[in-house]
Design a protein around this nucleic acid. Sequence first.
DNA 1: TTGTAAGCGTTATCAA
DNA 2: TTGATAACGCTTACAA
Lengths: 334, 334
Amino acid sequence: MKKVTMADVAKLANVSKSTVSQYLNKRYEYMSEETRKRIAQAIEELGYQPNVIARSLKQKTTATIGVIVFNMLHMLTTQVLHAIEEECQKREFQVIVCNSGDDPEKERKYIDMLLAKQVDGLIVFPTGKNEDVYHRLVAERFPIVFVDRMVPGVEADSVLLDNFGAAEMAVDYLAAHGYDRIAIVTPPLVAHNVPRMERLQGFRMAMEKRGLKVDDRSVIAAEAAELPGELQKRFAAPERPNALFAINDLTLMGILRFVKETGIRVPDELGLISIDDVPFADIYTPMLTTIAQPTFAMGKKAAERVFEQMDQERTRKPRVFRFSPTLVERTSIR
Amino acid sequence: MKKVTMADVAKLANVSKSTVSQYLNKRYEYMSEETRKRIAQAIEELGYQPNVIARSLKQKTTATIGVIVFNMLHMLTTQVLHAIEEECQKREFQVIVCNSGDDPEKERKYIDMLLAKQVDGLIVFPTGKNEDVYHRLVAERFPIVFVDRMVPGVEADSVLLDNFGAAEMAVDYLAAHGYDRIAIVTPPLVAHNVPRMERLQGFRMAMEKRGLKVDDRSVIAAEAAELPGELQKRFAAPERPNALFAINDLTLMGILRFVKETGIRVPDELGLISIDDVPFADIYTPMLTTIAQPTFAMGKKAAERVFEQMDQERTRKPRVFRFSPTLVERTSIR
DNA sequence: TTGTAAGCGTTATCAA
DNA sequence: TTGATAACGCTTACAA
């Protein structure tokens, strides 16, 4: 099954390759009605399909962007990806998806491969550990935008949640509803994880503003698997929290597991709020009050920004786009 | 920021392009220690990165496969994609992900674009409506595998759940636990949706084998949004079911919504089982008994098959791979 | 209105 | 051990 090329079409239609090329690029002004038809027919007859690789080589553009995420299985990722894909679809762009598994080595390798494949832009949920690479890209004015996390010191477009505001929202809502011993629950805190730290910061500030006490015991940090155990410990100690703020859906799951094991009554004994809207929020009993990220809008914006960067030669100053979360009031808070 | 090419490296290293090419392809036998070092240094100095587009043009292979799914947001999709990506990573392949939204037009367009981009293989969650395209691909021996759904009449590798067995498993388990008025709950039935029909078939056969009655009222088919209402109606009528078998996670959600609204007691008044393992299955009260698909194994197999098809010239007969589901016993069945 | 020819950045063949 | 040179399939001046 030999591939049919433009030359074959040209031969059959009795014209030159250039004319066929014109035809393919819809520059019909440059040819007679007559030849146009002949070409159309030849294409039809041979079942010709252009090779965009060849075109890319010449035009130095591939109509492809690369997206590197650190966890494909995470819901946020899926939703943002979906929005990106949709936005690309509009412009006839395609998306190469890579999963770094939050491993900086892999991330670096993927970036190299994508560049080698001449993608026109990059959207990255960064591990944050490859500053040198990020810097190089930015310096070269290569279209790139970060999502979910940003990288301090790297001047690139970034699309993130207003993490500070989200945490504040949680504390305010909890406090307004009469809870006063509030603890934040989070995966292990690591300095380079910006959203995590921002949420903790927001929590601290909001608590203080409200005159609520914050100490070691107000912060429960553990790996998802260890979380129920950690919570057991905390709740066995005096002054147990009467409300929990889960920093993301995964820690929420840990909390719910703990709640199930111990039979603590939500919302009476324990108020619950979390960032990330989970699909079963209104199916669970009680229905879960959450702080939702506008994932779709975030993905869309990310894609729009890469395109804008591609379009304009003299790049404008990079911007950080902070998206406001939405409080979804349900019944896990009394 | 001009791109540096092989020619630049060659010039700097004082060798010809061909030698540099040899170097890049690790054919070191063909050069002196001396030149090898010079080339390495030149590459380093210029920060040269090969352009794989050019290589692809020459070699007629892109180290890229295309994946077309019909719903990126579905969990099954995400998990299968993840496995595919992982498998590709091993071979230094990359994945272009496209979302057809179950629209045959889009699917067709995507297939064309991917072929134009010269992908080396295709994994498709097919809409099932583009038989002509599928046939052409198969006839050309283009590496392709279908996932989740298969297309009757198209002789291609397909990776699917043993849907029949899954339905049988559900009925058997329910029946063995004393439920006798079992209804299947499904999205609207359409003939070309193979898994749906197979699950229904399996349900029917298993019921009959068990001597249980199957009539119109044992099949509750509705769009997700209408499902709670539809269930209300069914449960208002006489001989209400005492067990429900949800054909997938989405209909399960509809059922849970209905259960919540009406306060029906699970598992005492109503037994519940579903295909697809949902992340909150063991957090929900009662914990949900499910029939899990081996999504990871399925994705892996799909990828492996495309690669096998790519490798062997004379293609072997296409196969349909049926994956066995796993019953996850929890407490939504008494 | 159409054709010729050069080039895009590689690889591959064949000589040297 | 290295280097010319011709592809790969397309686009694009420029010429006719």
